[in-house]
Amino acid sequence: MDTSITLTVDGSEHTLDVDTRTTLLDALRERIGATAPKKGCDHGQCGSCTVLLEGRRHLTCLALAVAHDGDEIVTAAGLTGSAADPASRGEDALHPVQQAFLDHDGYQCGYCTPGQICSAVGVLDEAKQGHPSHVTDDLEVGGDVELTDEEIRERMSGNLCRCGAYVGILDAVRQAAGQTPGRGVDPARHTHDHETEGAR
């Protein structure tokens, strides 16, 4: 059975007839051609399909497209100004979170990356709004939860990275949150050579 729905994806409106069995992820990837959100497990276990749905991070593999008629979706592609024109290959300015992932090499293969980035954007906003996590001591804190390393790790744990880029991702989220990055790639990296990289 098909149903007509309208989705706004990265600023563009799409009206389409979807099979009622279609997940939001498949509607994006297979129907609209928005392939920034990835299919890593299709069961809500890996986070690769994360987008910002009505401003909140959301797993699109666990959502049915018909349940989101009229909703606004921002994928990792839509975080730059280039989303409407995939041919631009992201030549426009990067979102600060995307830039932070580049600066700290918070990825390797890149497959979980759009989901990690959408998740990180969501984390920053949730912390600002005072949403507690499992490791937040004061559940009544109200606004602006301090994003300690423990908070970042906890809040990002729904996004698996099998390449193991967690150190770089942590540093990237720290940078995007306005905190000093710790280990990982020094932002002054262009001056690196083996003398400073190696031991002794």
Partner: peptide, 12 residues
């Protein structure tokens, strides 16, 4: 290929 990966434009 960093830019293509963080913007979701890399094609798998």
């Amino acid at each position: 290929d960093g830019r293509e990966k963080v913007t979701g434009h890399a094609r798998y």
